[in-house]
Structure formats: C-alpha cells, structure tokens
Amino acid sequence: MDIFSQPDVQQAVLTGFAWILKLTGASGVLALVLGVLLAGMRVSPVPVLRGIGTTWVNTFRNTPLTLVVFFCYFGLYTTLSVELSSDLDLNVFWLGVLGLSAYTAAFVCEAIRSGINTVPPGQAEAARAIGLTFGQTLRLVILPQAGRAVVAPLGSILIALTKNATIVGTIGLAESANAMKQLINDNGNVVIPIFLVFAGIFVALLVPTGYLFNWLGNRLAVRR
C-alpha cells in the first residue's frame, strides 16, 4: 500500500474523484431538469410532445452509455466540430456531461412518470375543477406529489450516474477509473490493493447517498 503514500499518486486519485463528483453534479442537475420536462411531455395531451418524449426515452434508455459518450466525442466533437470549451479537459468534461445527462434523463423521466401514476386521479380533477390549466395542474399539483413518491428511486439513479461517470474516462478525462488504469499500468505488483482502494472510495461515497435518499423519501412522502 506504499504507493498511496506518494504525493503524485494521491493527487491523481483526488483529481480522479473530483472529476467524478463534478460530472455527477452537473449531469445530475441537467438530467433532473430534462427528465422532469420529458415526463411532462410524455403525459401531455399534445401528440407531438408525447412523441418526442417517447422517442427520447426509447433511444437513450436502450443504447449503451459507452456508445452515447463515444458519439458525443467522436460524432459531435471530432466529426461535427462541436466544441464546448477551448480548454481540452473542460471540453471533454462537458461532452461527457452532455452524454451522461441525455442518457440519465431517460431514466429520470420514467421514474417521475411512475410517480405520476401514484397520484390519485382525483387530485388532477380537483385542480382542473378550480380552473388550473394543464401546465399548472402538472406543475403545482401532480409533479410535487409524483416527485416526493420517487425520491428513493431517484437516489438509485444518482448512484448509477456516479458510477456511470467513469465512462467519460474512455474519451480521455483523467477521472478515477482512468487514474486507476494508469496506476495499475505503473504498479503491476499491487493490482488488487489498487482495485480495493478505488472500490472502497466509491462505496464510501455512495452508501451514505443511498441512506440519505431513503431517509428523504420517507420524510417527504405525501400522507393520504
């Protein structure tokens, strides 16, 4: 375990997990916003919006994330010259965020939609009966209750997102998995300890996340 006492190794690990947290934070926010919008579209009375929502979910939920992230890099950036930052690292970071968000939003959408199904139809009827429009009914009555019903599943999606963020390493960001690969290449004699350390850090980050979301889910649950 000597290698983890070397400052440059510590730096690589720290940088790696800092990228993971940044990827998770940025993609988590974007995916939540996008996922809620998609869920709204999928339950809307406008066929075109429903179509867009359904197509999005079917596309991104059924495509490997590696493929989505590769497309962002080799398709959008290399081929179509879509550059999201002049800084090389940041460009790859935002391309990664784009892919992770598009992919995760599909899962968020479906979680929210299942939450909408837990809201009794009478809630929407009462909202319409006092003169709220469809958008207001969704925003003020349905989504707040649907969201509270799916806090724990959203926590699972966030945990999956954190781990999925390692895939951005494949397009060149020095995140944790990339750092690990580098360490293993340089220290073939301590492969297992290196694995254990990286796995341990992920577990240490994500186990409390799971408990936090379960606790929040219970706390925020709507009593009927």
């Binding site: 009827e125 009462a126 319409r128 009966a129 006092i130 003169g131 709220l132 207001q136 209750q145 709507v222």
Partner: peptide, 30 residues
C-alpha cells in the same frame, strides 16, 4: 371551470398542501 365550484365524494384536497394553501391555490394562480 373557475366559475363553477365542484365538491367531490372523495374530497380530493391537494395532499401535499396545507388546508390554507388548498384554499388559496386557485385565487393565487387562476
């Protein structure tokens, strides 16, 4: 609909809002 009040068999109060917020929602938003 805002001019026709409706009372349901199963009440249908907005479960995530207080009683006061249930009553003020329409006047505030509509």
């Amino acid at each position: 609909r805002s001019e026709v009040g409706m009372v349901f068999q199963s009440f249908n109060l907005f479960a995530h809002r207080t009683i006061l917020d249930n009553v003020t929602l329409g006047p505030l938003r509509v």
